[in-house]
Amino acid sequence: MRFGVVVFPGSNCDADCYHAVKDVQGQDCEYIWHQQSKITGFDALVLPGGFSYGDYLRTGAIARFSPVMPAVVDFARQGGLVIGICNGFQILLEAGLLPGAMLRNKSLKFICKPVNLKVLNNDTPFTNQFNQDEVIEIPIAHGEGNYYCDPATLGELKDNGRILFSYCGPEGQIGDDHNPNGSLNHIAGITNKEGNVLGMMPHPERCSESVLGGTNGYGIFASMINWLKEARA
């Protein structure tokens, strides 16, 4: 499969994502510079973490108007797989590919630590290598991951299995004690209505091989590859 990692000025997890896809998963991977207005021949796109445009105005607000973004939106509308990680998630929200917005973490602190996530829906292109309700550990690193949306949108997300990951305790307990940033309904990752666009705050590329101290992130990229293979078969 051929992955593209979109690089904005200020992206800083692009090389990690490239490594996780190319070296760890053994897939084709290319960087896509944000000035590129045409992208062709990709099976999946990764919007990596970082601080695109210095997080000026709002996180993701400026990146969303990069020349590459109309092509990313087209790719997503045609059903291409798109995963936005951390700042990539924030950009997808600003671009309107995912509903809602990010607020400052409730504690006002930048939080960088491993957290537990519960896989709330394993029947998706991004989670098919996990068990339903499996608890996985993936690190977060953000100051604005406090997800917010209106009650109607939240209902829609819940009712349609679009919340893929919730913050939880080691035994899968969901509650304020295990929510690092105050996000609504303990949301850590959501998809669009069609299910081909995922935004998540935790960083799977930072735990895709045992030398990094964890391998739970591996399953997310492996799920995407598996799904793409099945779609082609």
Binding site: L103, R104, N105, K106, Y148
Partner: peptide
């Protein structure tokens, strides 16, 4: 109705 952690602090 939107939480403002900065304002709270």
């Amino acid at each position: 109705g939107v939480l403002d952690p900065q304002g709270e602090a």
